[in-house]
């Protein structure tokens, strides 16, 4: 395409006006790309340069317990633990549910009415604003069932955000599994569930793993639902099932709403840790997909 179009403009029968329009369009699309890259670079640069100030051993190994926000020192240890536990619990709930739902949609429903209904509501779920998922857990888990703020409540709200991503990613991967493989298994008399478990899933596994990693990376940065479900604490709480728990996003929120320079520095360092975790997951997902790509096998 590209080579064709350059030739056509060199035929020299193109009038000046048309040339100018073509040039203008070219400038516009280049500028559009640059406009997207500027904020990306700016965000990463400010996070790295401001976050490096407090990105040290103390920050990674200490909580904020007993410290006022104006004090120097302190760290995000409680928040890192909280985030890892909450995200782990979220994955523990939503991966089996999501993968099984995808299996139902691809292998069993085959365009039936229930399948189409579930598929529609998975789409609806994708569009749920994160704050609404937090409000739901607040209404259901905390108000209706009378439970307390806890890391698990946060995980429940994150599950609602992660589930549809897992279902869609798994569905795409399952659809790519060649029918021949399944038919070969059926022809050998392998029961259907064993075919799915030991032929279909292993074939689709790298894709599912990288999809799950991306989904985890996405929910890791969610703040809004956590504000309503885990509340805010300065102390280390390793038990996600009872009491308020910290998390990196709420830690950043808490520290940044304080006008104090020490607190703002901690917020930037927290943002740096969060971005590093997310980028690591993103890279790992890419790596898994690349290492196990079909042409490499």
């Amino acid at each position: 395409m590209t080579s064709l179009s350059t030739k056509s403009s060199s035929l020299s029968s193109v009038s000046a006006g048309r040339k100018a329009k073509d040039r203008a369009a070219k400038v516009f699309v280049y500028a559009a790309f640059a406009l997207a890259i500027i904020p990306l670079v700016s965000v990463l640069w400010t996070v790295i340069s401001n976050g490096a100030k407090r990105f040290d051993g103390v920050f990674l190994t200490h909580s904020m317990n007993g410290l006022a926000s104006k004090d120097a020192g302190g760290g995000a240890y409680h928040a890192i633990i909280g985030t890892l536990e909450q995200v782990g619990l979220t994955a523990l709930i939503s991966v089996p549910l999501g993968v099984l739902t995808a299996i139902y949609l691809v292998e069993y429903a085959r365009g039936g009415r229930l399948g189409r209904t579930i598929s529609f509501f998975v789409d609806v779920m994708t569009g749920i604003p994160s704050i609404v998922s937090g409000l739901f857990v607040l209404a259901f888990w905390l108000l209706a069932l009378g439970m307390d703020f806890s890391g698990f409540a946060g995980a429940l709200s994150l599950t609602i955000l992660m589930l549809p991503t897992v279902v869609r990613a798994t569905e795409e991967m399952l659809k790519l599994v060649p029918g021949d493989l399944k038919e070969a298994a059926y022809a050998l008399g392998v029961p259907r569930w064993r075919t799915i478990m030991f032929v279909v899933l292993p074939t689709a596994l790298p894709g599912i793993v990288s999809g799950v990693m991306l989904a985890v990376a996405r929910v890791m940065g969610e703040t809004a639902p956590l504000l309503l479900t885990i509340f805010i604490t300065k102390a280390i709480n390793t038990d996600p099932f009872s009491g308020a728990q910290g998390s990196l996003p709420t830690f950043i929120w808490d520290q940044s709403t304080d006008p104090n320079a020490n607190a703002v520095d901690r917020a930037w360092a927290g943002a740096l840790v969060l971005i590093l975790l997310i980028m690591l997951l993103n890279l790992a997902a890419r790596l898994v997909a690349w290492l196990r790509r079909p042409s490499a096998r």
């Binding site: 229930l114 609404v132 998922s133 279902v167």
Partner: peptide
């Protein structure tokens, strides 16, 4: 086969139940 099919179907139904619960509890509260 029956158990596996039931499990995957059940997961799909859980998603429907969650969506219904979201609507019901938000309205109720």
């Amino acid at each position: 086969d029956r158990i596996f099919a039931g499990l995957s179907r059940g997961s799909g139904l859980v998603i429907l139940a969650i969506m219904a619960a979201i609507a019901v509890f938000l309205v109720w509260k």
